[in-house]
Each structure stands twice: as C-alpha cells, then as structure tokens.
Amino acid sequence: MERLNQDSLKTIDEIVERHRNEPGPVIVMLHDVQDSLGYVPFEAMEKIAEATGTSVAEVYGVVCFYAQFTTSPKGKHVINICLGTACYVKGAQALIDQTMALTGTQINSTSEDGIFSLDATRCLGACGLAPVCVIDGKVFGNCTKETVTAEINRIKAAEKLA
C-alpha cells in the first residue's frame, strides 16, 4: 500500500489538534478522520495514539470494533443498506442484490473503479420506514428496487459511467 499524501497527513494533524483536549478524544478523532478521508489510514492511528497517550493497537482495537470505521479507502459514493430485522423482513436483501448487480461491488466492499461502496449496516433506527437505504448520506425510506436503480443510474450518469 502506498504511503499517504501530504494533504491527507495535514488533515489528520488538524483533526488531532482540534480534539486533543476533549474527553474521550480517540473516537471523536476517528469519526472526523473517517468522514474527511473516507477511511482511517494507519498514519491516522499512529498520530491519534501519540496525541492521546494510547497505543496503535488500542486505537486499532476501536477501529475494528465499530463497523462505521474502515481501514481501506471507501468509494466516492457510499450506499448503506440496513439489514436490521425490520428492513430485512421488508425485503432489504433484494435491494442489496440489485445494488451488487448494478455497481459490481460486494457487501462491505468497494467497486474496482473506486466509485461505489456498499455497506450492509445494522439497524439505523428508522424501522418505520423499512426497508431503508442511505445513499451518500441521504436517507431513502420505503425503498424499492426502482429507487435504488434510479439513484445508481443518476450517479453513473453524473460520473459519466453509463
């Protein structure tokens, strides 16, 4: 794996500096790094460990405990499909199958071109809207195969893929 570029390192430094003196800083820093860079690179774990007086093994323990954090870069567009009980009963599996077919990703991974990531999430707490999917942060309730197809095609068009 190649080393991180200067911009990303700078972003990490800024995040670490911002939260350094907060209570429970590790998880706050990790969230910001995940949001800014789309994943938590090893360099971020090193810097967070140093700033918070923990070890990289401990920080990595947090990273791999929570499903929100990833250690490899996410795709440009992230599709989360809820696999909580309600969503599953209401047909979330079909949404996942459709997404995999259209984007070429597998569950919890990223397409080869780096455009799409597909995550099967735990309950998002919106069971009344089941099945739920979140595409690039926008929540789609009562989601159907058609909704997913339309959104993916819209993204593909914007990315000039189709």
Binding site: T54, S55, A57, E58
Partner: peptide
C-alpha cells in the same frame, strides 16, 4: 505491556466471538 512497558503492543481486535488479542493489524 501497557502498564509495565508503556508500549501497548497488544490489543483486543474485532468484536464478539471473533475477538482476538493481537499486535496492531
């Protein structure tokens, strides 16, 4: 490792039934 050597080489990784004790990664 954490308290005696201040290194913290080992940590708990993954969660639930998959939890193991390991150095980072």
């Amino acid at each position: 490792c954490r308290k005696v050597q201040g290194l913290g080489i080992l940590g708990l990784e993954n969660r639930g039934f998959k939890t193991i004790v390991a150095p980072v990664y």
